[in-house]
């Protein structure tokens, strides 16, 4: 088991842990926080996985993904704040 694969597996376990907050969170804002944490972890996983797969093109997916998931978070935040 290479160290890269170990790191990626632990990060996936952390995603499942963050999902506990997604289930339990008393308000919607707590759930958005959990979703934001999942976003960051997925981007980190994608960057590390491009080393495992040995293909440089895969790292571009992480950039696009980081930019686009941010749009979803901003949209939900605007709705929560009553500005939409």
């Amino acid at each position: 088991m290479s160290p890269w694969m170990f790191v990626v597996t632990v990060l996936a376990g952390l995603i499942l842990l963050a999902m506990v907050r997604l289930i339990r969170g008393p308000t919607s804002a707590n759930r958005v926080v959990a979703m934001d944490a999942i976003n960051t972890l997925v981007v980190a996983i994608m960057i590390v996985l491009s080393v495992v797969f040995k293909q440089v093109i895969f790292i571009d997916v992480a950039i696009v993904y980081a930019l686009l998931s941010y749009v979803g978070v901003l949209f939900i935040a605007k709705y929560l704040g009553g500005e939409l």
């Binding site: 995603i15 999902m19 997604l22 919607s28 759930r31 958005v32 959990a34 979703m35 999942i38 976003n39 997925v42 996983i45 994608m46 996985l49 895969f58 997916v61 993904y65 998931s69 979803g72 939900i76 709705y79 929560l80």
Partner: peptide, 19 residues
């Protein structure tokens, strides 16, 4: 709204699975 947030998380993980 919580369902929409969960659906967002679902599609994020689906993108990771395609990756």
């Amino acid at each position: 709204l919580a369902a929409a947030i969960a659906s967002g998380a679902f599609s994020l993980l689906l993108a990771l699975e395609f990756y």
